[in-house]
């Protein structure tokens, strides 16, 4: 297969180009507007954030950042979040890829109900499930541990990722599998060596999804985690904004510090958002 030049820049008229970039710039502005507010607020002292005067800058300071980084357990929370998110991502992708592949390729009994079952798991509201899940986790001795969070996040991430990957695997021609089988690959090897590399864009999407699910989740974390040194970032951040007397300045500073790595992860993930099919799975 040769690289194909897509219809694109070369043929675009200046007007179209202007419209395209104009729209994207506008959309980007809307996307970063509230984040810009968070960023600007993080540079203000607390009293200047909710105020009857709207200002971009007021008494600019980096004190909030230094407090968050040195005065709280933030670095520890960061580490915890990285661990939880990384494990959720790795385990989640592995399980959803195998599941998605099995459902896409093999017509085994229980296949269609399984997909429906995945949907049903997403239908019962989490808020109502938390108490019974806590009891189960307590019986397993997992309260206040990271595995509790990883397992809970997997229940959110895997059903979606399996659906997503199944859809993607469906679009990969089965002739590839058959060719691999003729070469003597078993079903697992075919999956691992032939199909998965081709599915890179979908894996990138699901990877990013699982990562962010674990990165930003609060409800389970607030139920299962009880000591400061086990907090994840998102839950740790919530400590800054109690019902009375919220510390907006620390919340916003911490939020900026939380968003940056997530943005970085995406920047690298998005490079894989290119077709693995046409380039035979070799394209970077």
């Amino acid at each position: 297969m040769s690289r194909v030049k897509r219809p694109g820049r070369s043929r675009r008229s200046p007007v179209m180009s202007f419209l395209l970039h104009g729209t994207l710039i506008l959309a980007s502005l809307i996307a970063i507007g509230p984040i810009a507010w968070v960023l600007l607020s993080s540079l203000k002292p607390g009293y200047a954030i909710q105020s009857s005067e709207l200002t971009l800058f007021r008494d600019t300071t980096l004190a909030n950042y230094s407090y968050v980084l040195t005065g709280t357990n933030f670095p520890r929370w960061f580490l915890n979040s990285v661990i939880v998110a990384a494990f959720t991502m790795a385990i989640g992708i592995f399980f959803s890829a195998t599941t998605g592949y099995a459902v896409s390729r093999f017509n085994f009994p229980g296949r269609r109900p399984l997909m429906m079952v995945f949907l049903v798991t997403q239908m019962f509201p989490v808020a109502i499930l938390i108490v019974p899940i806590y009891t189960i986790m307590a019986r397993l001795g997992l309260i206040n541990t990271m595995p509790a969070l990883i397992i809970a996040y997997l229940t959110i991430a895997v059903p979606f990722c399996a659906w997503m990957l199944k859809g993607y695997f469906d679009s990969i021609p089965t002739s590839l599998d058959e060719a691999a089988a003729l070469d003597g690959c078993g079903p697992f090897a075919t999956f691992w060596k032939v199909v998965l590399p081709l599915a890179k864009p979908a894996v990138a999407v699901t990877a990013f999804y699982t990562f962010l699910t674990a990165w930003g989740e609060v409800a389970y974390a607030s139920a299962f985690i009880q000591t400061d040194n086990r907090f994840t970032l998102a839950y740790g951040l919530q400590q800054f904004v109690p019902q009375f007397n919220p510390q907006w300045e620390y919340l916003t500073a911490a939020a900026v510090l939380v968003t940056l790595p997530a943005g970085l992860v995406f920047f690298f993930a998005q490079k894989h958002l290119v077709s693995g099919l046409t380039a035979g799975g070799t394209k970077g």
Binding site: Y134, T135, I143, A223, Q226, Q239, Q243
Partner: peptide
Amino acid sequence: INYQSVPFGEAQNKFKTAAQAKTGAP
């Protein structure tokens, strides 16, 4: 003393969930 600050708004539910499971309450 293991001091743990718990936001007022969530402490009630958190305590009850833990006390009911007989694990993890302070």
